[in-house]
Structure formats: structure tokens, C-alpha cells
Amino acid sequence: MAAVAAVKPYEFEAADRLENFHGNQLLYIGWDQHLMFCAPFCFPLPPAMPFRAFVEQVLPGAFGYHPEFKQIDWSKAEWLASGQPFKPDWDKSLTDNGLAHKAVLRLRTPGLTGIKGSAT
């Protein structure tokens, strides 16, 4: 069992526990093959936010600079949660979609391969 070697018990609350976020939870999302956005994004969101609102209201502000964002066919978009295939129910909340604090999503948009096909 891995443990920190210390002179006395060494245990603390996690710095990022849910209750520190004033009613929000963290959700991360990265857009595969679109590395113009250097890293996935991190959002503090109400757990009750419907998935649809996340996609329609939150994502444009984050990914909208990319010329391919407008071309996304959302009906064909593929999702991964923690690396596993994930089928969101757009009208259910994040919580009801099983997305807990610090869940990580990957968005895949087949056919869109970034600026000049460079995964940018």
C-alpha cells in the first residue's frame, strides 16, 4: 500500500473536493484531433445543468474559435467518458447522465480532422 512517509499521520482533505465549488461540480472536455485548443477545458457547472445546455450554451464559447466548430454534425458526434464510450441523454442533467464531479469527456467528430488535416 503506497503511503507518504511522514513523521506523523499525514492526511488532509482534498483541495478540490466538491463542496469547495459553491454548488458547482467540475467537468472537463477535450475535442479529439483539435489540438488548436492546447488542452481539454475545465468548467464549473451546476450538476442539474441539462447536457443540452452544456453543449449548446457552454461549448460554443470554448470551441467556437475553431472554423470546424460550425461544421459539427452533433447527431454523429461520439463521446467518451473517462475513456469509455458514452451516450449522453441531451435532456437529462449532468448528474443523471452519470457525470460526477471531475468527470472527463472526449468529443469525437468523425470527418473533421483539424486545420489542414493536422489535428489542429
Binding site: V4, A5, A6, V7, K8, P9, Y10, F12
Partner: peptide
């Protein structure tokens, strides 16, 4: 991080 030599 807290020091392992003085977690307090």
C-alpha cells in the same frame, strides 16, 4: 503540500 516532517 504540507511538509512530511511537520504536517501540522
Amino acid at each position: 503540500y504540507r511538509p512530511t516532517w511537520d504536517p501540522d
